[in-house]
Simulated scan of single mutants.
Amino acid sequence: MTDNPAFDKSRPFPVAAFVTVKEGEEQAFLSLLQEIAAYLAEAAPDKTYVYSWARDTENPRLFTLYEVHANWEAAMWHRQDAALVDFGKRFAPLVESTRQSTGTWVAGSESSRY
């Protein structure tokens, strides 16, 4: 990531995850996502600008999670925060597979809320 000349650690850092949930675990997964969102809204409003998800219309077990962190440091906080690590431990047994993609912020207001 850091070898990308367009990458600037001080700019917003977007992340997308594509998650396939184990059959029958969809509701538990959605409940956990809601808990995570509530935690982030309270604990990290200055670190996480966007935390959203979408459920695939053809495959109800496939979710896309989208996050925009304030910067690289905020993204690293997200990976190391004790409560979020605990959420991750609860997340793992519900998941069949996951794929992650990161990007570079290219447009939009960095200070506005979405």
Rank of each mutant, 00 (worst) to 15 (best):
V19N: 06
T20K: 15
N71S: 06
T48L: 05
V106Y: 12
D8P: 09
M1H: 14
A54D: 10
T2S: 12
V19M: 06
D86R: 08
A37V: 01
E58C: 02
A54L: 12
F13S: 02
R113G: 12
E96T: 07
K22S: 05
K9Q: 09
A44K: 15
G88I: 00
L33Y: 06
R99T: 15
P14N: 12
V68D: 00
S109R: 10
L40F: 02
E35P: 03
G24C: 03
S97L: 09
E67Q: 01
V85L: 08
M1A: 11
G108L: 08
A107R: 06
Q34N: 13
T20S: 12
K22A: 07
F29Q: 14
R99V: 13
P12E: 08
R79T: 08
P60N: 06
W77A: 00
R113V: 12
V50G: 01
S10D: 12
V95A: 10
R11C: 11
Y49V: 11
T2Q: 14
W105D: 05
W77L: 00
G88W: 02
I36L: 06
F18K: 06
P45T: 09
L32T: 10
Q80D: 12
E35A: 14
F91D: 11
T64L: 13
Y66H: 03
S10T: 15
R99S: 14
P93T: 12
V68T: 07
M76N: 02
P14G: 05
V68S: 00
Y66M: 03
W53V: 04
A6Q: 13
L30H: 03
S111Q: 10
R113H: 13
A44Q: 13
F18I: 10
E67S: 00
A75F: 04
T57I: 11
E23F: 06
